[in-house]
Design a protein around this nucleic acid. Sequence first.
DNA 1: ATTAGAGGATCGTAGGACGATCCAACAAGA
DNA 2: TCTTGTTGGATCGTCCTACGATCCTCTAAT
Lengths: 241, 241
Amino acid sequence: MSTAVPGHLRPLSPQGRALEADRALLGRTTAERVADVLRTRITEGFFAPGTRLAEDTIGGGLGVSRNTLREAFQLLTHERLLTHELNRGVFVRKLTVSDVVDLYRVRKLIECAAVRGIDRPPPGVERVVAAVAEGEHATRRQDWQGLGTANIHFHQALTALAGSPRVDELMQGIFAELRLVFHVMPDPRRLHEPYLAGNREILGRVETGDGPGAERLLADYLDNAQEQLVGAYAQQTAAGE
Amino acid sequence: MSTAVPGHLRPLSPQGRALEADRALLGRTTAERVADVLRTRITEGFFAPGTRLAEDTIGGGLGVSRNTLREAFQLLTHERLLTHELNRGVFVRKLTVSDVVDLYRVRKLIECAAVRGIDRPPPGVERVVAAVAEGEHATRRQDWQGLGTANIHFHQALTALAGSPRVDELMQGIFAELRLVFHVMPDPRRLHEPYLAGNREILGRVETGDGPGAERLLADYLDNAQEQLVGAYAQQTAAGE
DNA sequence: ATTAGAGGATCGTAGGACGATCCAACAAGA
DNA sequence: TCTTGTTGGATCGTCCTACGATCCTCTAAT
């Protein structure tokens, strides 16, 4: 089951605060760790969309009981990474075209709103800067997979500007779903490289506190990306069936 | 576990379509039905925030096995209605003041964005109209609890204008959390009645296709509501401890 | 070729077991 | 008195087994 931060321990001493990071390793159930493993496998493409994850096979392979595994499955089902069909089992999610459209609808709504209000260099820009650098680094190494990841980090950093834990969580899910889409697409370079320049441009606006400018760029950026992706994805999924 | 719509049955005949509504009762696991029961209990205030839900007690009371119950708990934990503490069990969530602040941050972000783009009477206004009517009806009957519900319906209808299933789902969770807040507040009339006029006013703007106007009203509305609620909630929670 | 079964695989749910963890109460020591 | 063990009970985390229900596939009969 999922962990809550126990809020009633004791007032944190400085040393106590230093250990806070390690808490993630402790207060976690097996189911959560299993979910972590599977999540990674899925988002990295090891389990392709449509793959069936049988309780027996996976549970046996990971050495956990069916109960525990089912809890992990449920976690991931809630994140929309798996779909669950009654009496048939769980499958790696296969997104429809209209899913992809909705993904971009949400992105436009949230990401644009997150930057619109900016009127000075906002707290949290460092993460945006870091993500752009990460993308350029990956490009130099011709690591297109890594570029895709950096791209996602860029947009996560943008949404983080909204300063809302709930929005961050929502978008984390959105981006995880997006990865599912990316994994059925060929040629990751063509998929990700075109947006590198746009990222830097948007970063420029954010750094100078030009929220409306950033929003405009971002909106165009996302419209473009959606058009590209949806077109290619429609073909891809049509071909796959 | 959660149910996916089986997409491979057959093209729906007219009669088949008529039965679609009943499917909710069938293709659902026990865990989901249990979650429904508990969700209702929680949002209606039967289980107050902070209440512990012991596996034994609840499972025995509902006549389901621990496995199933744990799945239901997990569902609700994901909806943030329960918190789970390792080796201690699950509790009805107690929101902090900063939770409430975040709730309103998200509402402002989403709801405003949902109405901003409007430039003509949008599809889906009927639901907004209906919600306003529901609120006025409840007021006439002095049903303040019902007014609160109508209020939530109003805002759900607004967010639905964005036309995004994912946004709808997010906001459904947000409003469920909000109910948790309402239940620790006394005097539901003072809590909900002041916003009745605002609702109608906003509806007016939406109906005439004045998106920006609706957004402005809504932003003020939400700022006000947040201020009111946070102040009272801070007192209330401080008093409760 | 279509349809109706039969069989096998897998899921949904129940129920039991046992170690691990937490909490409260109590005892010993500074 | 306050602090620091110690102990016991309650509850959780995880595993295991079991069995009916459901779905899928393959075969046999029309």
